[in-house]
Amino acid sequence: MILLITQLINGLQLGILLFLLAAGLTLVFGIMDLVNLAHGSFYMIGAFIGATMAAITGSFLVGLVLALPLAFLVGYIVEVTTLRTLYDRHHLDQVLATFGLILFFDTLLQLIWGPVGVAVVLPDYLNGFITLPGDIPIPTIRLLIIAIGLLVAAFLYYLVVRTKMGMLIRAGASNRTMAGALGVDIKRLFTLVFGMGAALAGLAGLMSTAITTEATIGMGNDIIIQAFVVIVIGGIGSIRGAFVASIVVGLVDTLGRSYLDQLLKLFITEQNAETAAPAIAAMLIYIMMAAILFFSPQGLFPPKTR
């Protein structure tokens, strides 16, 4: 029972990290119709910048606060210099060009910070455990990540549904040309949204280092694929879909890794189950995605237009 709750929390926390990545990704995807593989680079850049800031200032939380605007700035520069030219291009061009960006950023960070990466030291008050009723110890940092993620989700919901800017974002998402014709400065809006997505990715990256204890080269390249799984499952352009899907993916992935072997033992021999379980657990979210796309080719919350 304790194990189950711990794993639930872990899954929830992975889901939250995925959501922070996927939120930016799905907005960029939905509004600008841009496949940005390099979104994982912002995750990595945020982690490296934040970890360095934390090391300089001596406080992880200060690093966390500083990483946001700096990742925003990097995203802003990348959008203005490179990605802006790609909006009207074919998806293939976007995939390739952003693939080029990944290669560039991976090498650049290796040049600046060295191949080993940056270690992250958590302050004591984040390193401990909080005991839930029933003597279940939960790492404070995971709870913090979940709390921050939920705050961001609430903020995004408020931003998109309740504010003028959110209205413009939704207008841009459903019909770019019409919104532009009605006098919305779509270009500037795109840049802002893109920078915001980069900042969220950077935040997620830094928070993930709090658990892995180091920022490493190429750390964004695996999780970005999972984030793509999330937005494809959720339906491209839908923040609500991204939220639901990231929690589901986080839970399925974590629980699959810890419980699949026991589940399989019910059907096949113990030895076979132990060999097959890790492989199937790693594939689980991709199987889920393939199944969902097979029955609903545009994800769970498909975009209403286009």
Binding site: F29, V35, H91, V95, I225, F228, V229, V232, I236, T275, P278, A279, A282, M283, Y286, I287, M289, A290, L293, F294, P297, Q298, G299
Partner: peptide
């Protein structure tokens, strides 16, 4: 399965199948 989808979804689903193979092979 993949060809049921279009555009970006096709890119992502082919990628997902390759990832499945990747995890399959690494678990051998």
């Amino acid at each position: 399965i993949s060809l049921k989808t279009k555009g970006v979804y096709f890119i992502m689903i082919t990628l997902a199948f390759a990832q499945m193979m990747f995890f399959g092979f690494t678990s051998l």
